[in-house]
Design a protein around this nucleic acid. Structure first.
Lengths: 352, 352
DNA sequence: ATGAAAGCGCTAACAG
DNA sequence: CTGTTAGCGCTTTCAT
């Protein structure tokens, strides 16, 4: 352990130490066959003694793999989230699931911010791919359904996983069952005795918005409840759109007794308006959020929420891509990850 | 833009397209001198036309730089934060400041989780360094003052920045003035009319804990207020230790009218206990938090808090390291980044 | 089962 | 100002 200079240990040093060729060291390090147990042992000792760890860059240069998984996130949304610090922990959960899954397999996850709306999406994605040459790409919403990005990836034969997408035509799709989740939230409220339940829809830019609205409608229909005019309000996932929706509900001739917001920010916006107007929650109004974030848990009252399995989805995405890069063919198609409903004080039987 | 195969554009293709040598392309791409404007122009056009972006790995292999900055975070704390999802956005703010500062300079920030307490710290750090060969390392608390890590970095001549450290003996130290911040928080309360102010100290594993306590004592002393027995309570940054401290305050014969917690989690723990006991805030008790996180802003009441400039500190760290890697000698020593005090409803004049 | 040779895409060092 | 020559540390052939 005396090595302490700037010059680091390379495969050469290990080969010399063990008295074998570079090749043999490479084989041992990569767990390849055709090495006698005895020699393997000797090499592993040398590796350990010298503290050898292969250089990522050199591995990428020599071989075909880069041991890198690239996650692409929407620049504007991500930066806005960071600036506002409003407690969406999407990135954190993505890192949690993705980084650990990668680390377990000797991979590394890097993430990049990409402008969806920019005319330069292709240029930006291309730049990241060219620079990093990852073994796989993880797409998060709204990139998961961006045709420009998908086309690019397909053309380059770059394996990719699409989080929150149900499009199985290319790449791996990994999602939770958004429809079932909205349905579960709706059923939860119906079970509590609610009959006039509002639903704040999400941005149509995201495919999952439609699925959620459909799930809500399905649950209402199954219970024989009409979806009256004004019960479904448009939204764009923003706090403001949640506020606007709640104002609309409060202006309805016949009031709603419960509201489901298909995003955390919209739930908080709705909560804000309701509280401002002195609505007693949950006595007069129950509220359910999609997305179980810190802000939702710390709000007053704490909100009942659908827990999106962001970490497990990202972990699954990383696994699939690494398996693919390792030659293991995994089943393509849509992988559905279970969600959960966290029941908190914001939902109760109507009237108290 | 017809290139669409897997095989990507290399410096060769650009050289051929522009009719110059590889070297000239390299010079242009790296903004080096000794290229006629005319030729430079021609090369830039070829680069643009082919969509050429240099390979990170190849750059690292050929040259002396890797264009990578490595940020080291504490594994246990980080993972715990992700699991609990309690809304500490340290990682987010670090990424915000660090990634963008790196991106502006053509660098990339990668972050790794390292076990501080493990006997393998050195092995873990070494592995990350050997694999990535970054141009600089950013240390975050508690790594910033970990002698094993510092020694390793110094021995390897690896430039590094220490966030939240005031130790200027090696590397760049980047910090906010923790003492002044605690002092400002204390003065804020004194200005409101408080005289018996409690201070929940942080873990002694972190050097900044002492600075904060000192700042509190200094402000008290400057105002001629005694720091009576029991006013300073020990803590370890955890929610539980905040709860314990608040219980201790409530058990004091002569009650405190205000409390400063030197971490967000302790503030929330203290708030939890106070609310449970029916303490009216801020009428009966004012509370100030260190760390202006989402949870703090969404709590009831929203907490007055010291805003730690995590993003600016990380950005500064990245800048210094990249400048160093680029040959620009920057002033060593301690870089102090301004903090702010966000006044919210949790602090008011005593008694009402 | 092992080793030798070639080369990945770039930059450093040197020639001109 | 510009081009040529060597590698960087690995993995991939291909021999042995």
């Amino acid at each position: 352990m005396a090595r302490s200079s700037r010059q680091s240990v390379t495969i050469r040093h290990v080969a010399a130490e063990a008295g074998v060729s570079l090749q043999t060291v490479s084989r041992v390090v990569n767990n390849e066959p055709n090495v006698r147990p005895q020699v393997r042992e000797r090499v592993m000792e040398a590796v350990k003694k010298l503290g050898y760890v292969p250089s990522l860059a050199a591995r990428r240069m020599g071989g075909s793999r880069s041991y890198l998984i690239l996650a692409l996130n929407d620049r504007d949304r991500t930066i806005e989230g960071w600036q506002l610090g409003q407690g969406s922990d999407w990135i954190d959960q993505m890192l949690y699931g993705g980084m650990l899954a990668c680390a377990e397999r000797g991979y590394r996850m890097i993430f990049e911010l990409i402008d969806t709306h920019s005319a330069h999406v292709e240029r930006e994605v291309n730049a990241a791919l060219s620079s990093l040459r990852p073994d796989g790409v993880i797409l998060t919403p709204p990139h998961s359904d961006n045709p420009a990005i998908i086309d690019l990836l397909v053309k380059q034969h770059m394996p990719f996983a699409r989080i929150g997408s149900d499009d199985a035509s290319a790449g791996f799709a990994i999602r939770m069952d958004d429809g079932a989740a909205a349905q579960a939230a709706t059923e939860h409220l119906i079970g509590l005795g609610h009959r006039r339940i509002g639903f704040i829809a999400g941005s149509e830019e995201y495919r999952l918005s439609g699925a959620r609205t459909d799930g809500y409608r399905a649950a209402m229909a199954a219970a024989g409840l009409p979806v009256a005019e004004g019960l479904v309000q448009p939204g764009d996932f923003s706090f403001e759109s949640g506020e606007a929706a709640m104002r609309a509900y409060l202006a309805l001739p016949e009031p709603v007794t419960a509201v489901i917001a298909s995003s955390e920010q919209m739930a908080l916006g709705a909560l804000h308006v309701a509280r401002d107007r002195g609505v007693d929650m949950p006595a007069e109004l129950s509220l359910v959020s999609f997305d179980d974030t810190p802000a939702v848990r710390f709000s007053v009252p704490p909100l009942t929420a659908i827990t999106q399995p962001i970490a497990p989805m990202t972990a699954k995405a990383a696994e699939l891509l690494i398996d693919a890069a390792s030659g293991k063919e995994s089943e393509p198609g849509v992988h559905v990850i279970p969600f959960a409903l966290a029941v908190r004080r914001s939902s109760a039987a109507p009237g108290g």
